[in-house]
């Protein structure tokens, strides 16, 4: 069943035509990845979905409901939550305060408590460090915190923007392990990645974005075998 449906989206930065009619869909419980080079429009796609950018044309639907007419905070309340690129945690707030801020859209205290418990179980590291300042965490821990913060809002679709960016390989493995864990818990994820190899390992399906257009769409398995993907994104010859 299709949960998030993006159809023929055109987004502009001033005169620059950044997304030229992108269509993709994400089914419930699925990990879908969007891969592409720098400047292909991956982050633009996520920002358009979460309402930070308005598409000039096209439609984005969550369970059939049109999202493009809502403002960003309303889209969060609908359940489309983004883990921003570069983590962007609140460095001067403690880990716990960061997480509580993530639950801003939720008003039910018990719900917030149980979400907090869930995040701490998923990332025991964060429980240990809950009183520490966000800014003093290591890069990997910050990524955990950013992910946990997004989970606090009860997302029905999690938009992850480059979670592996700037992390040491061993930490990248840990982050992808948690993505698998989230998947096992039934979270639906739209994953934007430059690290195509890792992304195609966790995702069930993938889209390849090039200069604002989808050039390939297939099962992750098949994309890994694809000649062009192997050359351009997996660095194989």
């Amino acid at each position: 069943m299709v949960l998030l449906e993006i159809e023929n989206v055109h987004t502009y930065y001033g005169h620059i035509h950044a997304l030229k009619g992108v269509s993709l869909d994400v089914e419930r419980g699925e990990i879908v990845t969007l891969i592409g080079a720098n400047g292909a429009g991956k982050s633009t796609m996520l920002k358009t979905t979460s309402g930070l950018l308005k598409p000039r044309l096209g439609s984005i639907r969550l369970e059939g409901e049109e999202l493009t007419r809502y403002r960003p905070h309303e889209i969060v309340a609908k359940g489309v939550v983004q883990v921003p690129e570069g983590r962007r945690i609140f460095g001067r707030l403690t880990v716990r305060e960061n997480l509580e801020m993530g639950a801003f859209a939720i008003t039910d205290r018990h719900q917030i408590e149980s979400n907090l418990e869930r995040v701490f179980n998923l990332f025991p590291r964060l429980r240990e460090r809950q009183k520490q300042l966000g800014g003093t965490l290591s890069g990997g821990e910050q990524q955990m915190l950013a992910t946990g913060r997004a989970l606090m809002a009860n997302p029905s679709v999690l938009l992850m923007d480059e979670p592996s960016m700037g992390l040491a390989p061993v930490l990248v493995d840990i982050i992808f392990a948690t993505i698998r864990q989230l998947h096992a818990d039934g979270t639906t994820i739209l994953l934007v990645e430059q690290n195509a190899r890792m992304a195609l390992q966790v995702a069930s399906r993938g889209y390849v974005l090039q200069s604002g257009s989808i050039v390939l769409r297939d099962k992750a398995e098949s994309l890994r075998q694809n000649e062009m993907v192997r050359k351009a994104y997996l660095g194989e010859t």
Partner: peptide, 16 residues
């Protein structure tokens, strides 16, 4: 407070 720390992220947290 969230807005003071980071406007974009505040918005992504569901703050109007």
């Amino acid at each position: 407070m969230a807005m003071r720390e980071d406007e974009d992220v505040a918005q992504a947290m569901g703050i109007n």
